[in-house]
Write a protein that binds this DNA or RNA. Structure first.
Lengths: 166, 166
DNA sequence: ATCTATTCCGACTAATCCACTCGGATATAA
DNA sequence: TTATATCCGAGTGGATTAGTCGGAATAGAT
Protein backbone atom coordinates (compact mmCIF):
# COMPACT_ATOMS: atom_id res chain seq x y z
CA UNK A 1 0.00 0.00 0.00
CA UNK A 2 0.88 3.66 -0.32
CA UNK A 3 2.87 3.02 -3.46
CA UNK A 4 4.56 5.53 -5.63
CA UNK A 5 4.26 4.65 -9.29
CA UNK A 6 7.05 3.94 -11.72
CA UNK A 7 6.88 7.58 -12.80
CA UNK A 8 8.18 8.43 -9.37
CA UNK A 9 10.72 5.67 -9.39
CA UNK A 10 12.18 6.33 -12.81
CA UNK A 11 11.83 10.07 -12.50
CA UNK A 12 13.80 10.18 -9.29
CA UNK A 13 16.53 7.96 -10.69
CA UNK A 14 16.70 10.22 -13.69
CA UNK A 15 17.03 13.31 -11.56
CA UNK A 16 19.74 11.71 -9.47
CA UNK A 17 21.62 10.98 -12.64
CA UNK A 18 21.32 14.59 -13.73
CA UNK A 19 22.49 15.65 -10.31
CA UNK A 20 25.55 13.44 -10.53
CA UNK A 21 26.49 15.06 -13.82
CA UNK A 22 25.47 18.54 -12.86
CA UNK A 23 28.79 20.06 -13.92
CA UNK A 24 29.05 18.27 -17.24
CA UNK A 25 26.69 20.18 -19.47
CA UNK A 26 23.61 18.54 -20.91
CA UNK A 27 22.82 14.87 -20.87
CA UNK A 28 20.55 13.04 -23.29
CA UNK A 29 17.81 10.63 -22.38
CA UNK A 30 19.55 7.72 -24.06
CA UNK A 31 22.65 8.38 -21.97
CA UNK A 32 20.62 8.56 -18.80
CA UNK A 33 18.62 5.47 -19.64
CA UNK A 34 21.76 3.43 -20.17
CA UNK A 35 23.55 4.76 -17.12
CA UNK A 36 20.62 4.12 -14.83
CA UNK A 37 19.63 0.81 -16.32
CA UNK A 38 16.24 2.06 -17.44
CA UNK A 39 15.53 -0.23 -20.34
CA UNK A 40 12.73 1.78 -21.81
CA UNK A 41 11.89 3.50 -25.00
CA UNK A 42 13.16 7.04 -24.93
CA UNK A 43 9.65 8.31 -25.48
CA UNK A 44 8.58 7.11 -22.08
CA UNK A 45 11.35 9.01 -20.38
CA UNK A 46 10.28 12.02 -22.38
CA UNK A 47 6.92 11.88 -20.69
CA UNK A 48 8.61 11.98 -17.32
CA UNK A 49 10.93 14.84 -18.10
CA UNK A 50 8.07 16.83 -19.54
CA UNK A 51 6.51 17.49 -16.16
CA UNK A 52 9.89 18.01 -14.59
CA UNK A 53 10.55 20.70 -17.16
CA UNK A 54 7.15 22.27 -16.66
CA UNK A 55 7.95 22.45 -12.96
CA UNK A 56 11.16 24.32 -13.86
CA UNK A 57 13.32 21.70 -12.24
CA UNK A 58 15.22 20.98 -15.44
CA UNK A 59 16.02 22.76 -18.66
CA UNK A 60 16.56 21.36 -22.11
CA UNK A 61 18.31 22.12 -25.37
CA UNK A 62 17.02 20.50 -28.51
CA UNK A 63 18.79 19.15 -31.52
CA UNK A 64 21.95 17.13 -31.89
CA UNK A 65 24.13 17.11 -28.77
CA UNK A 66 21.11 18.39 -26.93
CA UNK A 67 19.80 17.09 -23.66
CA UNK A 68 18.77 18.07 -20.17
CA UNK A 69 20.36 19.69 -17.16
CA UNK A 70 19.13 20.67 -13.72
CA UNK A 71 18.04 24.28 -13.56
CA UNK A 72 19.37 24.61 -10.01
CA UNK A 73 22.19 23.00 -8.06
CA UNK A 74 21.28 19.56 -6.65
CA UNK A 75 21.43 20.79 -3.08
CA UNK A 76 18.65 23.25 -3.84
CA UNK A 77 16.20 20.77 -5.24
CA UNK A 78 14.06 19.09 -2.63
CA UNK A 79 12.82 15.58 -3.26
CA UNK A 80 9.35 16.78 -2.45
CA UNK A 81 9.47 19.09 -5.44
CA UNK A 82 10.62 16.29 -7.66
CA UNK A 83 7.90 13.90 -6.62
CA UNK A 84 5.16 16.48 -6.70
CA UNK A 85 6.18 17.35 -10.23
CA UNK A 86 6.14 13.71 -11.25
CA UNK A 87 3.03 12.54 -9.49
CA UNK A 88 0.96 15.50 -8.45
CA UNK A 89 0.10 16.66 -4.96
CA UNK A 90 0.80 14.32 -2.10
CA UNK A 91 -2.48 13.01 -0.76
CA UNK A 92 -2.85 9.67 0.98
CA UNK A 93 -6.56 10.32 0.88
CA UNK A 94 -8.60 12.66 -1.25
CA UNK A 95 -9.67 14.61 1.83
CA UNK A 96 -6.03 15.14 2.79
CA UNK A 97 -4.75 16.72 -0.40
CA UNK A 98 -1.99 19.24 0.08
CA UNK A 99 -3.29 22.76 0.36
CA UNK A 100 -6.90 21.79 -0.13
CA UNK A 101 -7.88 20.30 3.19
CA UNK A 102 -11.50 20.91 3.90
CA UNK A 103 -12.21 22.21 0.45
CA UNK A 104 -12.77 18.79 -0.97
CA UNK A 105 -14.10 16.82 1.95
CA UNK A 106 -16.84 18.72 3.72
CA UNK A 107 -18.16 15.88 5.79
CA UNK A 108 -19.29 17.49 8.98
CA UNK A 109 -20.04 14.32 10.82
CA UNK A 110 -17.46 12.51 12.87
CA UNK A 111 -14.78 12.35 10.22
CA UNK A 112 -12.13 11.55 12.73
CA UNK A 113 -10.04 9.83 10.11
CA UNK A 114 -9.27 13.10 8.40
CA UNK A 115 -6.68 13.93 11.02
CA UNK A 116 -5.08 10.56 10.63
CA UNK A 117 -4.57 11.08 6.92
CA UNK A 118 -3.38 14.61 7.42
CA UNK A 119 -0.72 13.39 9.82
CA UNK A 120 0.39 10.72 7.44
CA UNK A 121 0.63 13.26 4.68
CA UNK A 122 2.67 15.60 6.83
CA UNK A 123 5.01 12.80 7.72
CA UNK A 124 5.58 12.07 4.06
CA UNK A 125 5.98 15.64 2.90
CA UNK A 126 8.29 16.66 5.68
CA UNK A 127 10.48 13.68 4.99
CA UNK A 128 10.62 14.39 1.29
CA UNK A 129 11.15 18.10 1.74
CA UNK A 130 13.99 17.53 4.18
CA UNK A 131 16.07 15.75 1.56
CA UNK A 132 17.62 17.18 -1.56
CA UNK A 133 19.04 15.65 -4.69
CA UNK A 134 22.42 16.62 -3.32
CA UNK A 135 21.87 14.46 -0.27
CA UNK A 136 20.99 11.47 -2.40
CA UNK A 137 24.04 11.84 -4.58
CA UNK A 138 26.25 12.09 -1.53
CA UNK A 139 24.68 9.02 0.01
CA UNK A 140 25.13 6.94 -3.10
CA UNK A 141 28.73 8.11 -3.37
CA UNK A 142 29.41 6.75 0.08
CA UNK A 143 27.87 3.40 -0.70
CA UNK A 144 29.26 3.19 -4.21
CA UNK A 145 32.23 5.48 -4.79
CA UNK A 146 32.64 6.75 -8.33
CA UNK A 147 35.54 5.49 -10.51
CA UNK A 148 38.49 6.24 -8.23
CA UNK A 149 39.65 9.76 -8.73
CA UNK A 150 40.91 10.10 -5.21
CA UNK A 151 42.72 7.46 -3.29
CA UNK A 152 40.12 5.40 -1.55
CA UNK A 153 40.92 4.45 2.01
CA UNK A 154 37.84 2.36 2.50
CA UNK A 155 38.41 -1.37 2.82
CA UNK A 156 36.77 -3.95 0.63
CA UNK A 157 33.46 -5.57 1.51
CA UNK A 158 32.07 -2.18 2.30
CA UNK A 159 29.04 -3.45 0.49
CA UNK A 160 28.09 -6.18 2.88
CA UNK A 161 27.58 -3.81 5.76
CA UNK A 162 24.74 -2.17 3.84
CA UNK A 163 23.83 0.28 6.56
CA UNK A 164 20.65 -0.76 8.29
CA UNK A 165 20.49 2.59 9.99
CA UNK A 166 17.80 3.69 7.61
CA UNK B 1 0.15 10.20 -5.14
CA UNK B 2 0.79 7.77 -2.33
CA UNK B 3 -2.89 7.02 -2.03
CA UNK B 4 -4.50 4.56 0.28
CA UNK B 5 -7.35 2.70 -1.37
CA UNK B 6 -10.98 2.71 -0.36
CA UNK B 7 -10.33 -0.48 1.56
CA UNK B 8 -8.17 1.58 3.87
CA UNK B 9 -10.63 4.42 4.01
CA UNK B 10 -13.75 2.38 4.71
CA UNK B 11 -11.93 -0.09 6.87
CA UNK B 12 -10.58 2.58 9.17
CA UNK B 13 -13.96 4.27 9.46
CA UNK B 14 -15.45 0.91 10.30
CA UNK B 15 -12.87 0.29 13.00
CA UNK B 16 -13.44 3.72 14.48
CA UNK B 17 -17.12 2.95 14.67
CA UNK B 18 -16.42 -0.28 16.48
CA UNK B 19 -14.10 1.57 18.81
CA UNK B 20 -16.81 4.11 19.63
CA UNK B 21 -19.16 1.31 20.57
CA UNK B 22 -16.59 -0.85 22.26
CA UNK B 23 -18.65 -1.26 25.41
CA UNK B 24 -21.94 -2.02 23.69
CA UNK B 25 -21.58 -5.64 22.64
CA UNK B 26 -21.56 -6.59 18.98
CA UNK B 27 -22.47 -4.37 16.09
CA UNK B 28 -23.70 -5.51 12.71
CA UNK B 29 -22.38 -4.34 9.37
CA UNK B 30 -25.67 -2.73 8.42
CA UNK B 31 -25.60 -0.70 11.60
CA UNK B 32 -22.04 0.38 10.96
CA UNK B 33 -22.71 1.17 7.33
CA UNK B 34 -25.59 3.44 8.23
CA UNK B 35 -23.83 5.12 11.12
CA UNK B 36 -20.73 5.86 9.09
CA UNK B 37 -22.53 6.78 5.91
CA UNK B 38 -20.99 3.95 3.95
CA UNK B 39 -23.61 3.45 1.26
CA UNK B 40 -22.39 0.10 0.12
CA UNK B 41 -23.72 -3.38 -0.15
CA UNK B 42 -23.05 -5.25 3.03
CA UNK B 43 -21.03 -7.80 1.11
CA UNK B 44 -18.35 -5.29 0.35
CA UNK B 45 -17.91 -4.46 3.99
CA UNK B 46 -17.70 -8.17 4.66
CA UNK B 47 -14.64 -8.32 2.47
CA UNK B 48 -13.01 -5.65 4.57
CA UNK B 49 -13.81 -7.19 7.91
CA UNK B 50 -12.56 -10.52 6.73
CA UNK B 51 -8.93 -9.47 6.78
CA UNK B 52 -9.44 -7.55 10.00
CA UNK B 53 -10.71 -10.71 11.58
CA UNK B 54 -7.88 -12.76 10.17
CA UNK B 55 -5.49 -10.27 11.75
CA UNK B 56 -7.22 -10.88 15.08
CA UNK B 57 -8.22 -7.25 15.40
CA UNK B 58 -11.92 -8.04 15.61
CA UNK B 59 -14.11 -10.96 16.56
CA UNK B 60 -17.49 -11.95 15.28
CA UNK B 61 -20.62 -13.83 16.26
CA UNK B 62 -22.85 -15.17 13.55
CA UNK B 63 -26.58 -15.42 13.26
CA UNK B 64 -29.38 -13.09 14.28
CA UNK B 65 -28.24 -10.30 16.60
CA UNK B 66 -24.72 -11.19 15.62
CA UNK B 67 -22.03 -8.78 14.57
CA UNK B 68 -18.51 -7.65 15.29
CA UNK B 69 -16.53 -6.27 18.18
CA UNK B 70 -12.93 -5.27 18.71
CA UNK B 71 -10.86 -8.01 20.21
CA UNK B 72 -8.80 -5.52 22.24
CA UNK B 73 -9.54 -2.12 23.76
CA UNK B 74 -9.27 0.74 21.25
CA UNK B 75 -6.23 2.20 22.95
CA UNK B 76 -4.33 -1.00 22.29
CA UNK B 77 -4.95 -1.13 18.57
CA UNK B 78 -2.45 0.83 16.54
CA UNK B 79 -3.53 2.34 13.26
CA UNK B 80 -0.57 0.70 11.64
CA UNK B 81 -1.99 -2.69 12.49
CA UNK B 82 -5.33 -1.75 11.05
CA UNK B 83 -3.92 -0.51 7.77
CA UNK B 84 -1.50 -3.36 7.37
CA UNK B 85 -4.38 -5.78 7.84
CA UNK B 86 -6.45 -3.97 5.26
CA UNK B 87 -3.85 -3.24 2.63
CA UNK B 88 -0.84 -5.40 3.24
CA UNK B 89 2.67 -4.29 4.14
CA UNK B 90 3.52 -0.64 3.84
CA UNK B 91 5.86 -0.14 0.91
CA UNK B 92 6.09 3.09 -1.05
CA UNK B 93 8.33 1.18 -3.41
CA UNK B 94 8.79 -2.50 -3.96
CA UNK B 95 12.39 -2.29 -2.78
CA UNK B 96 11.27 -0.67 0.46
CA UNK B 97 8.80 -3.28 1.65
CA UNK B 98 8.56 -3.65 5.40
CA UNK B 99 10.80 -6.34 6.72
CA UNK B 100 12.12 -7.35 3.33
CA UNK B 101 14.57 -4.61 2.46
CA UNK B 102 17.32 -5.94 0.33
CA UNK B 103 15.65 -9.26 -0.20
CA UNK B 104 13.59 -8.07 -3.10
CA UNK B 105 15.75 -5.39 -4.67
CA UNK B 106 19.28 -6.59 -5.10
CA UNK B 107 20.49 -3.84 -7.36
CA UNK B 108 24.08 -3.37 -6.40
CA UNK B 109 24.71 -0.32 -8.52
CA UNK B 110 24.10 3.16 -7.27
CA UNK B 111 20.60 2.62 -6.04
CA UNK B 112 20.67 5.74 -3.98
CA UNK B 113 16.94 6.06 -4.12
CA UNK B 114 16.47 3.04 -1.90
CA UNK B 115 17.28 5.07 1.18
CA UNK B 116 14.84 7.72 0.14
CA UNK B 117 11.99 5.24 -0.05
CA UNK B 118 13.03 3.61 3.18
CA UNK B 119 12.88 6.95 4.96
CA UNK B 120 9.48 7.69 3.53
CA UNK B 121 8.25 4.32 4.65
CA UNK B 122 9.60 4.85 8.14
CA UNK B 123 7.89 8.21 8.33
CA UNK B 124 4.59 6.60 7.41
CA UNK B 125 4.85 3.60 9.67
CA UNK B 126 6.02 5.51 12.70
CA UNK B 127 3.16 7.93 12.28
CA UNK B 128 0.62 5.17 11.95
CA UNK B 129 2.05 3.15 14.78
CA UNK B 130 2.07 6.13 17.10
CA UNK B 131 -1.70 6.49 16.90
CA UNK B 132 -4.36 4.14 18.22
CA UNK B 133 -8.04 3.78 17.57
CA UNK B 134 -8.53 5.26 21.00
CA UNK B 135 -6.75 8.43 19.96
CA UNK B 136 -8.96 8.80 16.92
CA UNK B 137 -12.14 8.35 18.89
CA UNK B 138 -11.01 10.91 21.42
CA UNK B 139 -10.16 13.38 18.68
CA UNK B 140 -13.50 13.03 16.97
CA UNK B 141 -15.26 13.45 20.29
CA UNK B 142 -13.55 16.78 20.74
CA UNK B 143 -14.52 17.96 17.29
CA UNK B 144 -18.01 16.46 17.40
CA UNK B 145 -19.21 15.72 20.92
CA UNK B 146 -21.64 12.81 21.20
CA UNK B 147 -25.34 13.51 22.03
CA UNK B 148 -24.95 15.62 25.16
CA UNK B 149 -24.69 13.44 28.20
CA UNK B 150 -22.70 15.93 30.22
CA UNK B 151 -23.33 19.63 30.33
CA UNK B 152 -21.25 21.17 27.59
CA UNK B 153 -19.42 24.33 28.47
CA UNK B 154 -18.05 24.91 25.01
CA UNK B 155 -19.48 27.91 23.14
CA UNK B 156 -21.12 27.71 19.74
CA UNK B 157 -19.16 28.09 16.53
CA UNK B 158 -16.65 25.61 17.81
CA UNK B 159 -16.82 24.14 14.36
CA UNK B 160 -15.54 27.15 12.45
CA UNK B 161 -12.21 27.06 14.19
CA UNK B 162 -11.53 23.68 12.63
CA UNK B 163 -8.11 23.22 14.16
CA UNK B 164 -5.38 23.80 11.61
CA UNK B 165 -2.86 22.40 14.02
CA UNK B 166 -2.74 19.18 12.10
C1' DA C 1 -39.69 -26.53 12.94
C1' DT C 2 -39.37 -22.55 10.59
C1' DC C 3 -38.32 -17.90 9.74
C1' DT C 4 -35.24 -14.17 9.83
C1' DA C 5 -30.98 -11.77 10.59
C1' DT C 6 -26.59 -12.20 10.33
C1' DT C 7 -21.75 -13.72 9.21
C1' DC C 8 -19.06 -16.34 5.83
C1' DC C 9 -17.23 -17.44 1.10
C1' DG C 10 -15.84 -17.55 -3.74
C1' DA C 11 -16.52 -16.14 -8.22
C1' DC C 12 -17.51 -12.60 -11.33
C1' DT C 13 -17.46 -7.81 -13.54
C1' DA C 14 -17.16 -2.97 -14.68
C1' DA C 15 -14.35 0.78 -14.48
C1' DT C 16 -10.23 3.02 -13.62
C1' DC C 17 -5.45 3.65 -13.74
C1' DC C 18 -0.77 2.42 -15.04
C1' DA C 19 2.90 1.60 -17.98
C1' DC C 20 4.09 1.82 -21.70
C1' DT C 21 4.19 2.20 -27.38
C1' DC C 22 3.71 4.61 -31.83
C1' DG C 23 4.02 8.08 -35.31
C1' DG C 24 5.38 12.20 -36.38
C1' DA C 25 6.81 17.34 -35.81
C1' DT C 26 10.52 20.47 -34.61
C1' DA C 27 15.14 22.06 -33.59
C1' DT C 28 20.23 22.05 -33.84
C1' DA C 29 25.07 20.64 -34.78
C1' DA C 30 28.16 18.79 -38.16
C1' DT D 1 21.18 17.72 -45.75
C1' DT D 2 21.70 14.34 -42.51
C1' DA D 3 21.93 12.60 -37.94
C1' DT D 4 20.63 13.33 -33.32
C1' DA D 5 17.96 15.22 -30.12
C1' DT D 6 13.83 17.14 -27.80
C1' DC D 7 8.80 17.80 -28.22
C1' DC D 8 3.81 16.26 -28.55
C1' DG D 9 -0.64 13.81 -28.60
C1' DA D 10 -3.07 9.77 -29.28
C1' DG D 11 -3.65 4.94 -28.50
C1' DT D 12 -3.37 0.30 -26.10
C1' DG D 13 -2.86 -3.80 -23.24
C1' DG D 14 -2.59 -5.28 -18.69
C1' DA D 15 -3.12 -4.77 -13.85
C1' DT D 16 -5.49 -3.11 -10.09
C1' DT D 17 -9.48 -1.34 -7.80
C1' DA D 18 -14.04 -1.22 -6.38
C1' DG D 19 -17.53 -3.24 -6.19
C1' DT D 20 -21.70 -6.95 -7.28
C1' DC D 21 -23.96 -11.49 -7.08
C1' DG D 22 -25.55 -15.83 -5.39
C1' DG D 23 -25.60 -18.83 -2.00
C1' DA D 24 -24.06 -21.59 2.30
C1' DA D 25 -23.69 -21.72 7.39
C1' DT D 26 -25.14 -20.12 11.96
C1' DA D 27 -27.93 -18.49 15.65
C1' DG D 28 -31.89 -16.33 17.92
C1' DA D 29 -37.03 -15.61 17.91
C1' DT D 30 -41.62 -17.24 17.20
Amino acid sequence: MLRVSTRGEYGVRLMVDLARHYDNGTRSLTEIGQAEGLELKVQYLEQLVKCLREAHLIESTRGAHGGYRLSRPPSEIRMGEVLRALEGPIAPMICATEGEMGVICDRLDGCSTKYLWARVRNAITSTLDSMTLGDLVQESDIAHPPPARLVTLAPRKERSRSRQSV
